[in-house]
């Protein structure tokens, strides 16, 4: 047993391994901090700000902030949850999210977080910005209407697939997901087996021809709120289960 860093999250004592971020330690301890751009196995990015917690009263993103001895972290507070709710609502009015015909519905992390925060309709005005769809690839689809610019696919393609198929161009409201080719996804070296396709939290990056393999009603978040896997029973030490990545720490270190 290596000496751990001990600190508290919402008053609960937590132990982190040296080098672990706050959100990683929270996951291990069974405390779910909402997140969109963070995904275990990918480099921390710190862009979505949903995982913002306060450390000693100061806000910081828990996916980038290393755990430190004795810090006092607050996450599940009315104020932070109000901010998270507002961030989610902004994402819903900035993109064009038509859940009723989205293949990702029920498995979508953005939607699941909106369910978790009890959003029935956003309080902001819809923007209806025009975004492009790139269906050029025979097996893969990009729908930028749904893209939340979390950069999971950018990081996964670069770090896990070793390809750099995706990147961002433009700034502010004009920022968009671009592909590493003159124009179209079909001109890149993306492959249907790329891990970049597995990490999209929304329905922006999809494999074609498998849309409704799992029917609506039997999907990940249809009956279970997002974060339940983190808050559930901690994985046994020798699990090797290959189960939900947020629970099973042993599968992450591979």
């Amino acid at each position: 047993m290596t000496p751990g860093i001990t600190f508290t999250i919402d008053g609960k004592q937590v132990t982190a391994a040296p080098g672990q971020t706050i959100i990683e330690a929270a996951d291990t301890a069974g405390i779910y901090i909402p997140r969109l751009c963070h995904k275990p196995g990918l480099e921390p990015f710190g862009s979505c700000r949903l995982c913002t917690v306060t450390v000693g009263g100061r806000p910081c993103s828990s996916c980038t902030q290393p755990a430190a001895e004795g810090i006092v972290v607050e996450s599940d507070t009315d104020e932070l949850n109000e901010h998270r709710r507002a961030l989610l609502e902004m994402l819903f009015v900035e993109g064009n999210h038509f859940c009723m015909f989205c293949e990702k519905s029920g498995n979508c992390e953005l939607q699941a977080l909106a369910y978790k925060f009890g959003i029935t309709a956003p309080s902001f005005t819809y923007q209806w910005q025009k975004h492009d769809v790139d269906a050029s690839h025979p097996q893969i689809l990009i729908d930028r209407n749904r893209c939340i610019l979390c950069a999971r696919c950018v990081r996964a393609s670069q770090d896990l697939d070793g390809k750099s198929v995706f990147g961002f161009v433009g700034r502010g409201p004009n920022k968009r997901l671009a592909v590493n080719a003159e124009a179209r996804l079909s001109d890149t070296n993306v492959d249907v087996t790329d891990e970049a396709l597995d990490v999209c939290p929304v329905g922006a990056l999809l494999r074609k021809h498998v849309g409704y393999k799992v029917p609506i009603g039997k999907r990940q978040f249809d009956h279970t709120p997002i974060g339940s896997d983190v808050e559930g029973e901690p994985a046994p030490d020798d699990c090797g289960c290959g189960g939900a990545e947020n629970v099973c720490q042993c599968t992450q270190s591979e």
Binding site: F92, H97, C99, M100, P122, K130, H131, N145
Partner: peptide, 19 residues
């Protein structure tokens, strides 16, 4: 009470909103 996605977010008819 708004019932359904069309009332709460525009729904399918709102697909024309970007055109």
């Amino acid at each position: 009470i708004s019932i359904g996605d069309c009332a709460t977010m525009g729904g399918i008819p709102a697909l024309r909103n970007t055109v």
